[in-house]
């Protein structure tokens, strides 16, 4: 599914990713952990194609195709979804109209007709029930005045609607209380299949109690320095990151 090889990326000439390697296969869940400033969000933004970041070396392959030169929307059309750490507020555009535009633009890129309104409504109904979203919420302006939890739930709702191949969840657990966390994690688990993959970026073990990873990676100074199974997350929770930094010396 996703194959990242020797990825180097910088922003404003500051080098952030320094030779990152990562392979994610269909059906897998990967967790990326690491201290602040390690490059976790940069990694997510570079995969999604944010233009401020310059890829100076390396390859990002999605299903065998190099996507590192594609525009963000083209990557999205190819099945990349990024759940934002800080979703942007867009006043005047309702959640429904936004997701409708997103879906139909994606269909247009694939040469398909707009989704019939009836099918769209049915899908909205199903997915909002899955994430326990009040229907009234969907007619509100996108993220405007949403609580932290509502913003994150809305991100996962959009993910459910867009049905991506590769979903990257950038600190989706931050700002969530325990009930919202359970709902969001439950939604992600239900959307998981053998054909898609999830990359969870998090600081904390607690999300991984609900979304159980197949692999846990530690990102430090722009590289993955350690990989293990779910137990590595527990070890990190208990011991912090210093012992890994020491191992590296």
């Amino acid at each position: 599914m996703l194959k990242i090889n020797n990825l180097h990326a910088s922003i404003e000439e500051k080098s952030i990713l320094k030779g990152l390697n990562l392979e994610v296969k269909a059906g897998e869940v990967h967790a990326i952990m690491g201290p602040n400033g390690a490059g976790k969000s940069t990694m997510a933004n570079v995969i999604a194609g944010k233009e401020e970041y310059e890829v100076t070396d390396g390859v990002i392959e999605l299903n065998g195709e190099d996507i590192s030169e594609l525009a963000p929307e083209e990557r999205a059309h190819n099945g990349v979804f990024l759940s934002f750490q800080y979703p942007v507020e867009i006043p005047g555009v309702s959640v429904t109209n936004f997701i409708k535009t997103a879906i139909n633009e994606t269909r247009k890129a694939k040469g398909l007709e707009d989704m019939p309104a009836k099918d769209m409504l049915k899908m909205i109904r199903e997915k909002s029930e899955l994430l326990e979203i009040d229907r009234k919420f969907l007619s509100r302006s996108l993220n405007e005045g949403f609580s932290g939890g509502e913003k994150k739930r809305n991100e996962i709702f959009q993910m459910a609607m867009l049905e991506p191949k590769l979903a990257i969840l950038d600190e989706t657990d931050s700002g969530l209380d325990i009930d919202a966390l359970r709902i969001v994690a439950n939604g992600v688990n239900k959307l998981k299949s053998k054909d898609n993959a999830v990359v969870v970026i998090t600081h904390y073990q607690r999300l991984l109690d609900y979304i159980v990873p197949d692999f846990v990676h530690v990102l430090h100074d722009g590289k993955i320095v350690k990989t293990g199974d779910a137990s590595l997350a527990l070890e990190l929770e208990a011991k912090g990151y210093d012992w890994i930094k020491k191992e590296l010396v």
Binding site: A48, P72, E73, F81, F84, F98, A102
Partner: peptide, 15 residues
């Protein structure tokens, strides 16, 4: 706002 534009593009909406 470039961040807002990136957000939309990420959801498949062309620039």
């Amino acid at each position: 706002d470039d961040d807002a534009l990136f957000y939309m593009q990420q959801r498949g909406i062309p620039q």
